[in-house]
Each structure stands twice: as C-alpha cells, then as structure tokens.
C-alpha cells in the first residue's frame, strides 16, 4: 500500500477509514476486526485534527500507510501537530460506570481506540508524530 496523505481536516476521516479498510482487507482481517481497526484510527485521527491542528490554529496533513510484518498488520498515522501521546488521556474505569448526566463530554475516544487494537505505540520522529496501530493476523 502506498502512503496516502490527506489534509488534517475532519472531512478526511472517511477517507482515512476507507484506507484502513483496504489495508485490513488485503491483510485478511475479518469484518469485526476491520471495524475495530477503523474505529481506532478514526478516533486518534479525530484527536489529531481537533486538538492538534484546529485548536492550535495550525494546518497540516495526516499520512497513513500500512506494513505487514511477522504476522502483524501495522497502520501508521503521521502528522505534524504538537507532540502528544494519546495514551495519557485514557479515562479511568470508574468513568464508564457513571450515569450519563455525571460524565464529562469527551475522553472516550482514546479509550475506545486503545481497547480496539492489539497494540498502540506513539513516537516522535523529528517534528513528525507517529501513531502506530497493530493488529495480529490469524487471530
């Protein structure tokens, strides 16, 4: 799969999901795990676009590419928004037990993303943020 580069705008989300779907299908993931991967990518991409680009008044792109290695599919999102490791945002378990009227709006996306994939890593490469989603194949 070639690297796809899309503008860091919410309108790009469906294109990012279609790209993840194609990579998952080519790697042989079933429909349920394909959905999980798309959900995770969508949530992290949304955070990058909203908090990384829009709220900091920056513009930039989001790149997406896939690698298949040693029984794993890895999807890599790349962006140039301010560095941020989304793993620091995951809500505590108690949050999920609260009634809706007592829940803060937000904070669920990263939790869903991290629960939906077999592995997630964040790293910086110069000014580029790399979010790496891993799904084991044959699971």
């Amino acid at each position: 799969m070639k690297k796809l580069v899309l503008p860091g705008k919410l309108e790009s989300l469906s294109g990012i999901r279609r790209c993840a779907e194609e990579a998952a299908s080519a790697a042989g993931l079933d429909s349920g795990r394909t959905y999980d991967l798309c959900l995770a990518i969508d949530e992290i991409a949304t955070n990058i676009i909203v908090h990384g680009y829009e709220e900091t008044m920056r513009s930039g792109d989001i790149g997406i590419r896939a690698e298949v290695t040693e029984g794993e599919l890895r999807l890599i999102l790349e962006d140039t928004s301010p560095p941020f490791d989304p793993r620091t945002l995951a809500p505590p378990k108690e949050y999920l037990d609260k009634p809706l009227e007592d829940r803060p709006i937000g904070g669920l996306g990263v939790y869903l993303a991290l629960q939906s994939v077999d592995g997630f890593e964040y790293r910086q490469k110069g000014t580029t943020n790399c979010s790496v989603f891993t799904m084991k194949l044959g699971k």
Binding site: E101, I105, L108, G109
Partner: peptide, 24 residues
C-alpha cells in the same frame, strides 16, 4: 454502519440537556 465516540458524546449531551429524568 459506523459510530465513533462523537456519537456517544451526543448521547451524553442529550441526557445533560434534557435532564436526568428523560428516558433514552
């Protein structure tokens, strides 16, 4: 066919906007 957390946030918004007594 697909729902991200953006949809869940609207459910929370609905409850908070309409009050705890509204049945969702």
């Amino acid at each position: 066919a697909f729902m991200a957390s953006a949809g869940l946030r609207i459910l929370i918004f609905a409850k908070q906007k309409m009050g705890a007594d509204v049945q969702i």
